[in-house]
Protein backbone atom coordinates (compact mmCIF):
# COMPACT_ATOMS: atom_id res chain seq x y z
CA UNK A 1 0.00 0.00 0.00
CA UNK A 2 1.39 3.36 -0.96
CA UNK A 3 1.57 6.12 1.57
CA UNK A 4 -0.94 8.89 1.01
CA UNK A 5 0.44 12.29 1.93
CA UNK A 6 -1.45 14.80 3.97
CA UNK A 7 -0.72 18.49 3.75
CA UNK A 8 -1.96 20.96 6.30
CA UNK A 9 -2.06 24.60 5.39
CA UNK A 10 -3.85 27.71 6.35
CA UNK A 11 -6.55 29.15 4.20
CA UNK A 12 -5.18 31.65 1.75
CA UNK A 13 -6.72 33.57 -1.06
CA UNK A 14 -5.97 36.44 -3.37
CA UNK A 15 -8.28 39.28 -2.39
CA UNK A 16 -8.89 42.62 -4.06
CA UNK A 17 -8.66 46.00 -2.39
CA UNK A 18 -12.20 47.38 -2.74
CA UNK A 19 -11.66 50.63 -0.84
CA UNK A 20 -8.82 52.62 0.71
CA UNK A 21 -9.97 55.10 3.34
CA UNK A 22 -7.75 57.38 5.41
CA UNK A 23 -8.91 57.01 9.02
CA UNK A 24 -6.22 59.11 10.76
CA UNK A 25 -2.89 60.77 10.01
CA UNK A 26 -0.72 58.09 8.38
CA UNK A 27 -3.39 55.40 8.84
CA UNK A 28 -5.35 53.89 5.96
CA UNK A 29 -8.18 51.41 6.18
CA UNK A 30 -8.26 48.69 3.53
CA UNK A 31 -11.42 46.85 2.61
CA UNK A 32 -10.53 43.49 1.06
CA UNK A 33 -13.02 41.40 -0.91
CA UNK A 34 -12.98 38.14 -2.82
CA UNK A 35 -12.74 38.90 -6.56
CA UNK A 36 -15.42 36.29 -7.37
CA UNK A 37 -17.69 37.42 -4.55
CA UNK A 38 -17.27 34.23 -2.53
CA UNK A 39 -17.88 34.35 1.22
CA UNK A 40 -14.67 34.86 3.21
CA UNK A 41 -13.85 32.49 6.08
CA UNK A 42 -15.43 33.49 9.39
CA UNK A 43 -13.43 34.94 12.28
CA UNK A 44 -13.90 36.12 15.84
CA UNK A 45 -12.83 39.37 17.55
CA UNK A 46 -9.07 39.54 18.11
CA UNK A 47 -8.26 37.61 14.91
CA UNK A 48 -5.63 38.73 12.44
CA UNK A 49 -4.63 37.90 8.89
CA UNK A 50 -1.33 37.80 7.09
CA UNK A 51 -0.94 40.09 4.13
CA UNK A 52 1.71 38.83 1.74
CA UNK A 53 3.34 42.03 0.49
CA UNK A 54 5.94 41.16 -2.10
CA UNK A 55 8.63 39.27 -0.19
CA UNK A 56 7.21 40.34 3.17
CA UNK A 57 4.50 38.78 5.31
CA UNK A 58 2.85 41.12 7.81
CA UNK A 59 0.10 40.56 10.38
CA UNK A 60 -2.85 42.94 10.64
CA UNK A 61 -5.80 42.66 13.02
CA UNK A 62 -9.25 42.44 11.51
CA UNK A 63 -11.15 45.51 12.69
CA UNK A 64 -14.45 45.24 10.78
CA UNK A 65 -17.64 43.33 11.39
CA UNK A 66 -17.21 39.55 11.91
CA UNK A 67 -20.64 38.86 10.41
CA UNK A 68 -19.73 40.55 7.14
CA UNK A 69 -18.75 37.57 4.97
CA UNK A 70 -18.04 39.82 2.00
CA UNK A 71 -15.05 41.80 3.28
CA UNK A 72 -12.12 41.94 5.66
CA UNK A 73 -11.16 45.32 7.07
CA UNK A 74 -7.66 46.18 8.28
CA UNK A 75 -6.14 49.53 9.26
CA UNK A 76 -2.47 50.09 8.58
CA UNK A 77 -0.24 52.72 10.16
CA UNK A 78 2.66 53.94 8.10
CA UNK A 79 5.53 53.22 10.49
CA UNK A 80 8.40 55.72 10.30
CA UNK A 81 10.87 52.88 10.82
CA UNK A 82 8.92 50.53 8.60
CA UNK A 83 10.56 47.25 7.77
CA UNK A 84 8.79 47.58 4.44
CA UNK A 85 5.32 46.25 5.20
CA UNK A 86 3.47 49.41 6.04
CA UNK A 87 5.16 51.48 3.33
CA UNK A 88 4.25 48.77 0.81
CA UNK A 89 0.60 49.09 1.87
CA UNK A 90 0.64 52.89 1.75
CA UNK A 91 2.59 53.28 -1.47
CA UNK A 92 1.72 50.30 -3.59
CA UNK A 93 -1.79 49.18 -2.69
CA UNK A 94 -4.76 51.02 -4.15
CA UNK A 95 -8.30 50.19 -5.16
CA UNK A 96 -8.13 47.16 -7.45
CA UNK A 97 -4.76 45.92 -6.15
CA UNK A 98 -4.57 42.21 -5.48
CA UNK A 99 -3.07 40.93 -2.29
CA UNK A 100 -2.57 37.42 -0.95
CA UNK A 101 -4.29 37.02 2.42
CA UNK A 102 -3.62 34.12 4.78
CA UNK A 103 -5.75 33.17 7.77
CA UNK A 104 -7.63 34.47 9.71
CA UNK A 105 -6.25 33.10 12.95
CA UNK A 106 -6.78 34.24 16.51
CA UNK A 107 -4.26 34.28 19.33
CA UNK A 108 -6.00 37.11 21.12
CA UNK A 109 -9.47 35.65 21.65
CA UNK A 110 -12.05 37.45 23.73
CA UNK A 111 -12.80 35.18 26.69
CA UNK A 112 -16.29 35.48 28.15
CA UNK A 113 -16.30 37.76 31.21
CA UNK A 114 -18.72 40.08 32.99
CA UNK A 115 -16.33 43.08 32.75
CA UNK A 116 -13.56 44.18 30.42
CA UNK A 117 -10.95 46.89 30.51
CA UNK A 118 -9.61 47.61 27.03
CA UNK A 119 -6.35 49.53 26.81
CA UNK A 120 -5.22 50.68 23.37
CA UNK A 121 -2.09 52.48 22.29
CA UNK A 122 -2.19 54.02 18.81
CA UNK A 123 -2.91 51.59 16.00
CA UNK A 124 -3.21 48.84 18.64
CA UNK A 125 -6.86 49.86 18.87
CA UNK A 126 -7.71 47.77 15.79
CA UNK A 127 -8.25 44.29 17.35
CA UNK A 128 -10.15 45.92 20.21
CA UNK A 129 -12.85 47.39 17.93
CA UNK A 130 -14.67 44.10 17.21
CA UNK A 131 -14.03 43.04 20.81
CA UNK A 132 -15.82 46.13 22.06
CA UNK A 133 -18.74 45.40 19.74
CA UNK A 134 -18.95 41.85 21.10
CA UNK A 135 -18.60 42.89 24.75
CA UNK A 136 -21.35 45.43 24.19
CA UNK A 137 -23.62 42.90 22.47
CA UNK A 138 -23.05 40.44 25.33
CA UNK A 139 -24.22 42.99 27.84
CA UNK A 140 -20.81 43.04 29.54
CA UNK A 141 -19.60 46.04 31.47
CA UNK A 142 -16.64 47.49 29.56
CA UNK A 143 -14.32 50.47 29.42
CA UNK A 144 -11.81 51.58 26.82
CA UNK A 145 -8.79 53.73 27.51
CA UNK A 146 -7.29 54.78 24.18
CA UNK A 147 -4.02 56.63 24.11
CA UNK A 148 -2.43 58.31 21.07
CA UNK A 149 -0.02 61.09 20.22
CA UNK A 150 -2.79 63.45 19.17
CA UNK A 151 -6.45 63.21 18.19
CA UNK A 152 -5.54 63.40 14.51
CA UNK A 153 -3.34 60.31 14.76
CA UNK A 154 -5.91 58.20 16.59
CA UNK A 155 -7.80 55.97 14.16
CA UNK A 156 -11.54 55.64 14.79
CA UNK A 157 -11.34 58.09 17.73
CA UNK A 158 -14.43 60.03 16.66
CA UNK A 159 -16.48 56.86 16.21
CA UNK A 160 -15.39 55.56 19.62
CA UNK A 161 -16.13 58.88 21.31
CA UNK A 162 -19.76 58.47 20.24
CA UNK A 163 -20.01 55.40 22.48
CA UNK A 164 -20.10 57.73 25.46
CA UNK A 165 -18.56 57.63 28.88
CA UNK A 166 -17.27 54.08 28.62
CA UNK A 167 -14.57 55.48 26.33
CA UNK A 168 -11.67 57.60 27.56
CA UNK A 169 -9.56 59.15 24.81
CA UNK A 170 -6.10 60.30 25.83
CA UNK A 171 -4.49 62.34 23.05
CA UNK A 172 -0.96 62.94 24.40
CA UNK A 173 -0.75 66.54 23.14
CA UNK A 174 -3.88 67.43 25.14
CA UNK A 175 -3.72 65.22 28.20
CA UNK A 176 0.00 64.60 28.66
CA UNK A 177 1.55 61.19 29.20
CA UNK A 178 -0.77 58.35 30.13
CA UNK A 179 -0.59 57.21 33.73
CA UNK A 180 -0.79 53.46 33.16
CA UNK A 181 -0.63 52.80 36.90
CA UNK A 182 -3.84 54.80 37.33
CA UNK A 183 -5.54 53.09 34.38
CA UNK A 184 -4.71 49.63 35.74
CA UNK A 185 -4.79 50.83 39.31
CA UNK A 186 -7.68 48.90 40.72
CA UNK A 187 -7.56 45.18 40.09
CA UNK A 188 -11.12 43.90 39.99
CA UNK A 189 -12.28 40.32 40.33
CA UNK A 190 -13.95 39.12 37.14
CA UNK A 191 -12.47 41.87 34.97
CA UNK A 192 -10.28 40.91 32.03
CA UNK A 193 -7.77 43.39 30.63
CA UNK A 194 -7.20 43.41 26.87
CA UNK A 195 -4.23 45.49 25.85
CA UNK A 196 -2.71 46.17 22.45
CA UNK A 197 -0.24 48.81 21.35
CA UNK A 198 3.45 49.66 21.30
CA UNK A 199 5.97 47.51 23.19
CA UNK A 200 6.39 50.11 25.93
CA UNK A 201 2.67 49.98 26.75
CA UNK A 202 2.58 46.17 26.67
CA UNK A 203 5.66 45.80 28.86
CA UNK A 204 4.22 48.33 31.32
CA UNK A 205 0.89 46.53 31.42
CA UNK A 206 2.64 43.20 31.97
CA UNK A 207 4.63 44.63 34.84
CA UNK A 208 1.65 46.18 36.61
CA UNK A 209 -0.69 43.23 36.05
CA UNK A 210 1.90 40.66 37.16
CA UNK A 211 2.33 42.60 40.39
CA UNK A 212 -1.26 43.33 41.30
CA UNK A 213 -3.87 41.62 39.07
CA UNK A 214 -5.11 38.01 39.30
CA UNK A 215 -3.11 35.62 37.10
CA UNK A 216 -4.64 35.36 33.64
CA UNK A 217 -6.47 38.69 33.82
CA UNK A 218 -4.20 40.37 31.27
CA UNK A 219 -4.50 39.48 27.60
CA UNK A 220 -2.23 41.19 25.13
CA UNK A 221 -0.97 40.85 21.62
CA UNK A 222 2.38 41.82 20.16
CA UNK A 223 2.86 42.58 16.53
CA UNK A 224 6.56 43.39 16.66
CA UNK A 225 8.98 40.67 17.64
CA UNK A 226 10.76 41.04 20.95
CA UNK A 227 14.53 41.27 20.71
CA UNK A 228 15.89 37.81 20.02
CA UNK A 229 17.66 36.47 23.06
CA UNK A 230 20.65 34.50 21.78
CA UNK A 231 22.57 33.02 24.69
CA UNK A 232 26.04 34.44 25.35
CA UNK A 233 27.73 31.13 24.67
CA UNK A 234 26.06 30.95 21.25
CA UNK A 235 23.44 28.60 19.81
CA UNK A 236 23.52 24.92 20.65
CA UNK A 237 22.49 21.83 18.73
CA UNK A 238 20.04 19.31 20.21
CA UNK A 239 18.13 16.12 19.47
CA UNK A 240 14.51 16.47 18.41
CA UNK A 241 12.06 13.62 18.95
CA UNK A 242 8.63 13.80 17.32
CA UNK A 243 6.70 11.41 19.54
CA UNK A 244 3.58 11.16 17.39
CA UNK A 245 5.48 10.53 14.17
CA UNK A 246 8.04 8.27 15.80
CA UNK A 247 11.11 9.99 14.36
CA UNK A 248 14.29 11.36 15.88
CA UNK A 249 16.02 14.29 14.20
CA UNK A 250 19.00 16.53 14.87
CA UNK A 251 18.65 20.31 15.09
CA UNK A 252 22.00 21.93 14.17
CA UNK A 253 22.99 25.37 15.45
CA UNK A 254 22.09 27.11 12.22
CA UNK A 255 18.64 25.61 11.62
CA UNK A 256 15.27 26.13 13.28
CA UNK A 257 13.13 23.35 14.77
CA UNK A 258 10.49 24.28 12.20
CA UNK A 259 12.86 23.78 9.26
CA UNK A 260 14.12 20.46 10.57
CA UNK A 261 10.54 19.18 10.99
CA UNK A 262 9.59 20.27 7.50
CA UNK A 263 12.71 18.75 5.94
CA UNK A 264 11.68 15.44 7.49
CA UNK A 265 8.50 15.63 5.40
CA UNK A 266 6.18 16.25 8.32
CA UNK A 267 3.40 18.75 7.77
CA UNK A 268 3.41 21.60 10.24
CA UNK A 269 1.72 24.98 10.08
CA UNK A 270 3.89 28.06 10.04
CA UNK A 271 3.64 31.59 8.82
CA UNK A 272 5.69 34.49 10.11
CA UNK A 273 8.88 32.65 11.13
CA UNK A 274 9.50 35.43 13.62
CA UNK A 275 7.69 34.08 16.66
CA UNK A 276 4.86 36.59 16.36
CA UNK A 277 1.89 34.94 14.72
CA UNK A 278 1.60 31.79 16.86
CA UNK A 279 0.73 29.54 13.92
CA UNK A 280 3.48 26.97 14.53
CA UNK A 281 2.78 26.32 18.22
CA UNK A 282 3.53 22.73 19.25
CA UNK A 283 2.99 20.77 22.44
CA UNK A 284 6.20 20.03 24.34
CA UNK A 285 6.46 16.68 26.15
CA UNK A 286 10.06 16.84 27.31
CA UNK A 287 13.03 19.22 27.23
CA UNK A 288 13.81 22.64 28.59
CA UNK A 289 12.46 25.13 26.08
CA UNK A 290 14.42 28.26 25.25
CA UNK A 291 11.50 30.55 24.39
CA UNK A 292 12.28 33.25 21.81
CA UNK A 293 8.76 34.12 20.67
CA UNK A 294 6.45 37.06 21.36
CA UNK A 295 3.29 34.99 21.75
CA UNK A 296 3.56 33.24 25.10
CA UNK A 297 3.40 35.18 28.34
CA UNK A 298 5.62 34.52 31.35
CA UNK A 299 3.27 31.96 32.92
CA UNK A 300 2.89 30.13 29.64
CA UNK A 301 6.65 30.09 29.13
CA UNK A 302 7.20 28.76 32.62
CA UNK A 303 4.65 25.98 32.04
CA UNK A 304 7.13 24.60 29.47
CA UNK A 305 4.38 22.67 27.69
CA UNK A 306 4.17 24.56 24.41
CA UNK A 307 6.56 26.36 22.08
CA UNK A 308 6.75 28.26 18.81
CA UNK A 309 9.02 26.04 16.75
CA UNK A 310 9.95 28.75 14.24
CA UNK A 311 12.22 30.64 16.66
CA UNK A 312 12.33 28.88 20.02
CA UNK A 313 14.99 26.28 20.76
CA UNK A 314 16.04 23.94 23.55
CA UNK A 315 18.46 24.35 26.44
CA UNK A 316 18.65 20.64 27.19
CA UNK A 317 20.09 17.98 24.86
CA UNK A 318 16.75 16.48 23.95
CA UNK A 319 13.44 18.06 22.94
CA UNK A 320 10.33 15.87 22.60
CA UNK A 321 7.28 17.25 20.81
CA UNK A 322 3.79 15.79 20.59
CA UNK A 323 3.83 15.81 16.80
Amino acid sequence: MTESRTTLREHEGELVVAAVTPVADAVVELRLVDPSGRALPPWTPGAHVDLVLGDLVRQYSLCGDPTDATAYTVAVLREPDSRGGSSFVHERLGVGSRVLVRGPRNHFPLVSAPRYLFVAGGIGVTPLLPMIAEADASGADWRLVYRGRSRATMAYAARLAELGERVTLLPGDETGPMDLKAVLGEPAEGTLVYCCGPERLLAGAEEICTASWPAGALHLERFAAKEAEVPAEGERAFELVLAGSGVTLQVPVDRSVFDVIQDAGISVLGSCHEGICGTCEQVVLEGEVDHRDSVLNEAERAANDAMMVCVSRCRSDRLVLDL
Binding site: T2, E3, S4, R5, T6, R9, P41, P42, P104, L269
Partner: peptide, 15 residues
Protein backbone atom coordinates in the same frame (compact mmCIF):
# COMPACT_ATOMS: atom_id res chain seq x y z
CA UNK B 1 -5.01 3.92 -0.95
CA UNK B 2 -6.49 7.39 -0.72
CA UNK B 3 -4.75 10.10 -2.78
CA UNK B 4 -3.00 13.06 -1.10
CA UNK B 5 -5.20 14.93 1.33
CA UNK B 6 -5.13 18.71 1.40
CA UNK B 7 -6.33 20.20 4.68
CA UNK B 8 -7.01 23.92 4.84
CA UNK B 9 -7.70 25.57 8.18
CA UNK B 10 -8.93 28.94 9.34
CA UNK B 11 -9.61 30.19 12.83
CA UNK B 12 -12.99 28.51 13.04
CA UNK B 13 -13.24 26.15 10.06
CA UNK B 14 -11.53 23.12 8.54
CA UNK B 15 -11.73 22.09 4.89
Amino acid sequence: APPPLDVVVTETTVE
